[in-house]
Computed example of a mutant assay.
Amino acid sequence: MKFKFTRNNNGPSVKSRIESVLRQMLNNSGNLAMNPSTELTRKIIGGTKAREGDWPWQVSLQWSGVHHCGGVLISKKWILTAAHCFTSHSDTRQWTVTFGISTTFPKERRGVRTILIHNNYRPETHENDIALLQLDKEVTFTRNIHTVCLPEATQNIPPGSTAYVTGWGSQKYTGSTVSDLQQARVNIISNNVCNAPSSYNGAILPGMLCAGLSQGGADACQGDSGGPLVQEDERQLWFLVGIVSWGYQCGLPDKPGVYTLVTAYHDWIKQNTEI
C-alpha cells in the first residue's frame, strides 16, 4: 500500500491523514492486515526506517561500544565523517566501525587505525568540519556494504533539489539515539536563504551546505553527526554531497540542518586517501 503526498506536507499531518484513510478502510472492510515493517516510524526527524541495503555506505562510529556518530564508506579502508565527533574522543583503540542498518546486530565490525582531522577545523565556527578514519582491516564489498560516489569539485547541487539524510540519531532534540537506521528526504537550501536574519544570520560559510524543509519537520539530529547527505543523479548513481555537521536544535522552521559541503574538500580527500 502506498500513499503519495506533495513535498510540502510535514510529518505529523501526513501521519494523521494516513491514519484517517486506514481507519476508513477498516470501517468499510471490517478487516485490515498490516505488515509491522510499514509502521509509521518517526526517528531521525520526520524520517522512516531504512531497509537493509538501501544505504550501504552508511556506518556507525562507536565509542567504547556505544553509537556516537555516523560515517560514510568511501573506499575499502577509508571512512569520511565530521571532525567534531573527535573533540574529546581521540583514542583510536576505543573506536569501532560497524556496517549494516542495525547498531545492535551489525553485518561487520572494524577497528580504527588512523584518525585524520582537517588541520583548519574551527569548532567555534564549525569551519572545515571533516575527518577521515582509516580502518584497521579492509572491508569486502557486498550488496549491503559498499561505497558511495564522491562528487567532483565542480559538481552542481541546485537549491530545491531532493537529497536524503540517514542515521541513528534521536527523533527529537535531546532525545536518545535509535538502533535501526532511519532516513529522511530533505531539500537543498541556498546559502543566501540559509544566511537570512530569520535563519542562520550569516553563519553559513562557503564550505557549508543547508538542507531541510522551510516549514521544518525533516532533519538530522543528535547522533547523526558525520553521516551522509546524498543525491541521486540521472544515471541512478548516488553521490555524497554533505556530511552532517551542525544546526539549531532539530527540525525547526527556518533552521535547517547544516552540512559540510563535500565538493569543497575534493582535493583534501584525494590527497589524504589517494582515492
Rank of each mutant, 00 (worst) to 15 (best):
Y248A: 14
G175L: 07
W168L: 04
T177N: 06
T87R: 15
R93A: 15
H84Q: 05
D254L: 15
S199I: 07
R7A: 12
E138T: 15
T166D: 00
P151L: 00
T260F: 01
T140L: 13
P123D: 08
Y259D: 00
I189R: 08
K137M: 15
A50R: 05
T48V: 13
A218T: 08
A203G: 04
F99K: 11
I269M: 04
K2V: 09
N27G: 10
G167A: 09
S29F: 11
V148D: 02
V244K: 06
H126N: 13
C194M: 02
T6V: 08
S29A: 13
G242N: 05
C85A: 13
T38K: 12
P158C: 05
K4A: 11
T103I: 15
N272Q: 05
Q271A: 15
Q215R: 10
G65Q: 10
Q62H: 04
W78I: 04
N27C: 10
Y121L: 06
G226E: 01
A220F: 01
P228L: 06
L252N: 07
R109T: 13
G169L: 02
A211E: 02
I157D: 04
V244S: 03
Q271C: 07
V178E: 00
V262I: 02
T48F: 13
S20G: 11
Q222Y: 05
S161I: 00
Y200T: 03
C85M: 05
T260G: 01
P12N: 11
D224Q: 03
I101A: 15
R143M: 09
V14K: 12
Q24I: 11
C250P: 07
Q215A: 14
S198F: 13
T103W: 03
H118S: 03
G257V: 05
K2C: 09
A184Q: 05
A131L: 11
E127G: 13
G226Y: 05
I189D: 02
N119T: 08
N201G: 06
V72W: 02
S13C: 11
A131K: 09
M34D: 00
V178H: 06
S29I: 07
S37T: 13
Q231L: 07
T96V: 15
G100N: 04
I101G: 06
D136H: 13
V72M: 06
L73K: 01
K172Y: 12
G212I: 00
T174H: 10
T140D: 14
T87G: 14
N187G: 07
N28S: 15
S88E: 14
T125A: 09
L240Q: 10
D267A: 14
R51M: 09
Y248C: 12
F105M: 09
K77R: 15
F86I: 08
Y248D: 14
Q94T: 14
I79Q: 01
T104F: 11
G212W: 03
L61I: 13
I79S: 02
D233E: 06
R17C: 11
K2S: 10
Y121P: 02
Y248T: 14
E127K: 15
F5K: 08
N128A: 13
P36Q: 10
G167V: 06
D224P: 00
Q215C: 01
Y265G: 03
R23F: 08
R235W: 08
P106W: 09
N195H: 02
K15H: 13
L181G: 02
P158W: 01
P12Y: 07
I45C: 07
Q182W: 01
N8L: 08
